[in-house]
Design a binder for these strands. Structure first.
Lengths: 160, 160
DNA sequence: CATGAATGTGTATAAATATACATTTGCGGT
DNA sequence: ACCGCAAATGTATATTTATACACATTCATG
């Protein structure tokens, strides 16, 4: 019989190559490759490999091997006081918010906000010193303020 | 009763703050906060929010909100299929719509839209990867979606 | 060699999660 | 205002996934 290690390698390979939507599906493929195991063992293997089950538009769900890359490279946003000390104010009106920044900084700050993909904020448009934030229908100013404050601590003190 | 949007926000918040190891556990917390739902709805919510179930050394399993990183996965250099394959999504809020594009393409795509002088769309403002569409007072989301789909076939599949 | 600890696995089942179906709700169109 | 349709949700259940328990295997050690 093939070894456990071989099996783990095979599992990883299959999962990275194809969209697998259930353990049974994966089990079938492994069986075709000559591995003789049960769903129970497979469940343990997936746990061991830290394989996540994640919703997928196409297939409903799919299994995914853990991330290896860095998400938010710290160096980019750790400039002393940046970007908070470049933000002058933020104000709300309807489902919109207007953030005022120091000249030239609107785009970079908007990128930072965008990079977090905040659920409450549909999108941003930046000029030179002003950012327009379009908020999700039905969310309150405080919802948005709280969400933004999470990534820009202290922002709440700049609400007009 | 509290709105669905509020609930989704609450779910994200709880999940980011605490390690939740089952839907029932999360359901209890939501109930304490005054949300009255069943496990079925919660399962749907988690799928909608793309929350993954991932193995965790401490708790066995935990739920995790999606990476905000992989927003623009493939960057191609051919104009094949332009501009549709440069459009990531479109979402509505009030009389506004926010279209997300691949970096650098917002302006050119906005020009395309502008050039058609669509009745339902008063105007557009484009940043680097985001287009804001201001829609005519009184027209519905579907009106706008239909109009845009005429000049950008398939767009409707990208509505979030 | 005997022994026991650690690991691996299957079986059976518990637990967790997803979904088909029915019902309700809310909104856009006429 | 009314109608029709799509979205949202609960109920009940199917499907999927995790695990308790028992047994087997390996390996280090007295």
């Amino acid at each position: 019989m093939k070894s456990k290690t071989q099996r783990l390698i095979a599992i990883r390979q299959i999962i990275t190559e194809k969209k697998i939507s259930s353990q049974d599906e994966l089990l079938t493929l492994l069986t075709e490759q000559g591995f003789q195991i049960t769903q129970a063992t497979l469940s343990r293997d997936l746990k061991y490999l830290k394989v996540a089950k994640v919703p997928d538009n196409a297939t409903g769900y799919r299994y995914e091997v853990p991330e290896s890359g860095n998400k938010h490279p710290e160096v980019e946003y750790t400039m002393e006081g940046f970007p908070m000390n470049r933000i002058d104010s933020i104000e709300f009106s309807g489902q919109l918010a207007v953030m005022k920044t120091k000249p030239g900084f609107a785009n970079s700050i908007a990128s930072v906000i965008d990079s977090y993909g905040i659920f409450e904020v549909l999108g941003t448009i930046a000029g030179d010193d002003t950012i327009l934030l379009i908020n999700r229908d039905g969310v309150s100013k405080t919802d948005v303020a709280n969400a933004l404050d999470l990534i820009l601590p202290g922002l709440k003190t700049k609400i007009l």
